[in-house]
Amino acid sequence: MSVIYFLISISVVVAGIFLYLFIKSVKSGQFDDAYTPSVRMLFDDEVNVKQKKTNSEQTENKQKENQI
């Protein structure tokens, strides 16, 4: 029966951990600029695509070499 004390305490503690993390991230300024990261994220993709291309070309070349 007393498991309910245990479960509810855990649930409150877990919620408390999330609250702590939220406050901590606000304090660090993570939410001050909500726009730029959303754009920046897309740039990273773009650069990666280029690198991947060169990577995949290289692997293709390697594969060709292997085939030969």
């Binding site: 001050d32 600029d33 909500a34 726009y35 730029t36 754009v39 920046r40």
Partner: peptide, 8 residues
């Protein structure tokens, strides 16, 4: 490194 803050 350059970090842009767009809203500001």
């Amino acid at each position: 490194r350059v970090l842009v803050n767009f809203p500001e």
